[in-house]
Design a protein around this nucleic acid. Structure first.
Lengths: 125, 125
DNA sequence: GATTACAGATTACATACGTAATCAAGTTTT
DNA sequence: AAAACTTGATTACGTATGTAATCTGTAATC
């Protein structure tokens, strides 16, 4: 997918999460999925869906009178784009200080640590 | 500092970077510092400074007719807050998948890797 | 004094975003 | 047939943001 990933806002990101977990989904399915997590009215979620369609982050198929929505970019793609933007903006593009900061401050399980170390081991070669 | 860190926008973040590097600074000093990095007109930067003051992210002292501006939060504090928000939003609060993704995709120098490993080593205990 | 320069205060305008309603058309229920 | 329901399309409105101008008061220059 070589198209440019559109900027997805915070609220829109919540909607994308639902679609990445269950795709394609009807608007009502998205509304139901978001019900436990947000106070949004159904109309709000419908608006967000439409905005994502306008932004070309989401596509839809019309089945009778009901639309089913699906993401136009993989979750990983969007995460990467967002992460890269984040690093550039907050850490001036320097990855290491960020990882250092996280590693020093956040709690990681022994299994997590082991996994990260093995990834680093692979990186050495 | 127990006050709540205000939300700093992308453009405002550029201004904060200058103030974290050189503080206190006059508006003209900020403008000069940002000149090589942005196309912004001086008025734009003055607006951003004023907004940061309104948001209580930046304070100022008046010296004659000239103001000197300084950050009201440490760079580390703001980075942490922004990073936490980012992790929550994009990775649902799960730190490990993010680090894994970065480690697998980004280029790190041997020194970087060594340092990260020693940090992980300390984490084990 | 008139003019220019300077720096902060205020205003401007368009877009993005958060939140949600109303509108419109089709379908279902009474 | 009328009313109610459903779903997408369109509209609404306030705040945030990007970008930058105009306004205002003071000081310096001519």
């Amino acid at each position: 997918m070589s198209k440019k990933i559109p900027k997805i806002s915070d609220a829109e990101w919540e909607v994308m999460n639902v679609l990445w977990d269950n795709s394609p989904s009807t608007a009502n399915e998205v509304i139901e999925a978001l019900q436990p997590k947000t106070d949004w009215k159904p109309k709000t979620i419908r608006t967000l869906l439409n905005r994502l369609v306008q932004k070309k982050a989401v596509g839809f198929n019309q089945e009778g009178k009901v639309y089913t929505f699906y993401p136009l970019f993989e979750e990983d793609e969007c995460r990467r784009a967002e992460a890269q933007s984040f690093i550039t903006r907050i850490y001036g593009g320097a990855l290491k200080p960020m990882i250092v900061q996280f590693l020093q401050e956040q709690s990681l399980s022994p299994e997590d640590i082991k996994e990260l170390r093995s990834i680093l081991d692979e990186k050495v070669q």
